[in-house]
């Protein structure tokens, strides 16, 4: 049957469009990551240094991206905010995938009671609207980079568990796994040596998607004032601050919004592409 007709039209790269649709998102993400890593060595003003006389200045040669409500340099804050976003965005799903992956793989491999328990646990976590659970966690854990990461990590457990469970089930009955079992390999060995390497690609594709989801969630928490505590810059917090001066200095909100949009868009592009590579059948959603 003609596969091309079944394929949902994602904007993801196919054929000729491959070049720009990969290069641009990749370049943007690389730029954000590079600046975030090297921020301390770049000639940037302190992102927390206030200069109240120079508040809400539009972009100029001295302040490439202008200044915010408190006269802080926007470029510097964007770059340090990117650092926050990336740390949370990369670490939280990693944590979630470690735990969720373990749960999902055990459930998919052992089935029976373990599976029932795991699915029950996932169901309970999924019964909470994500952001509401994140808010509650952070509020009671206390606001810090670590706690925000932890809370968002917990939230990515169900998704990770589902992906790894489904994939494990698909692999657990393959010939080479059965063969390993007949020669007396331990469950641990089969899980880590035989199944894990096959489940990892799907997990990786999913992790890429999770990064952008978590960056958005961190932005939402910071926007609500429940993310990374105040002087430390974060994109969501900057957008929230900029909201107050939308009429006189729209750049204070629009610039961090644009940066965040581009980052999430790029990550979605890359995630879609990797997912199509890993599993050509699941190219939608």
């Amino acid at each position: 049957m003609s596969a091309s007709a079944v394929r949902p039209a994602t904007v993801a790269p196919v054929g000729r469009r491959l070049s720009w649709a990969i290069v641009l998102p990749l370049a943007w993400v690389a730029l954000v990551a590079f600046l975030a890593v090297t921020a301390d060595w770049l000639p940037l003003p302190d992102p927390a240094a206030q200069e109240l006389i120079l508040r809400r200045k539009p972009p100029s040669t001295t302040y490439l991206l202008g200044t915010d409500n408190l006269g802080r340099d926007m470029l510097s804050r964007i770059i340090y905010g990117g650092r926050t976003s990336l740390i949370v965005g990369i670490c939280a799903p990693f944590f979630g995938f470690l735990i969720g992956g373990a749960i999902g793989m055990s459930a998919g491999y052992f089935r029976g009671k373990v599976d029932l328990l795991a699915v029950g646990f996932i169901d309970i976590l999924l019964a909470f609207p994500t952001l509401v659970l994140a808010l509650t966690f952070v509020a009671y854990l206390g606001q810090s980079l670590f706690n925000v990461t932890l809370a968002l990590g917990i939230l990515s457990i169900p998704a990770a568990a589902r992906v790894s469970r489904a994939n494990t089930m698909a692999w657990a009955n393959r010939d080479f796994v059965l063969a390993a079992r007949t020669i007396g390999a331990s469950n641990w060995r089969i899980l880590t040596r035989e199944i894990l390497p096959n489940v990892l690609p799907a997990m990786f594709a999913f992790w890429l998607v999770a990064v952008s989801v978590i960056i958005v969630a961190e932005g939402a928490l910071s926007f609500l004032g429940l993310g990374i505590p105040a002087p430390q810059p974060s994109w969501g917090g900057m957008i929230a601050d900029g909201r107050e001066a939308l009429d006189v200095a729209p750049h204070t909100a629009l610039i961090p919004a644009a940066v965040m949009f581009l980052t999430v868009l790029s990550l979605n592009f890359l995630g879609d592409m990797v997912r199509n590579l890993v599993d050509p059948r699941r190219s939608s959603l």
Binding site: A9, V11, A220, G242, R243, A257, F261, L265, N268
Partner: peptide, 26 residues
């Protein structure tokens, strides 16, 4: 139309609601 709506959807998908809210107010 298909490609147009897919691209539009992809764009909105990368827009968090707090950002969209601010943009709409603006």
């Amino acid at each position: 139309f298909d490609r147009l709506s897919a691209s539009t959807a992809f764009g909105f998908l990368a827009t968090p609601s707090f950002m969209l809210g601010i943009l709409l107010i603006y």
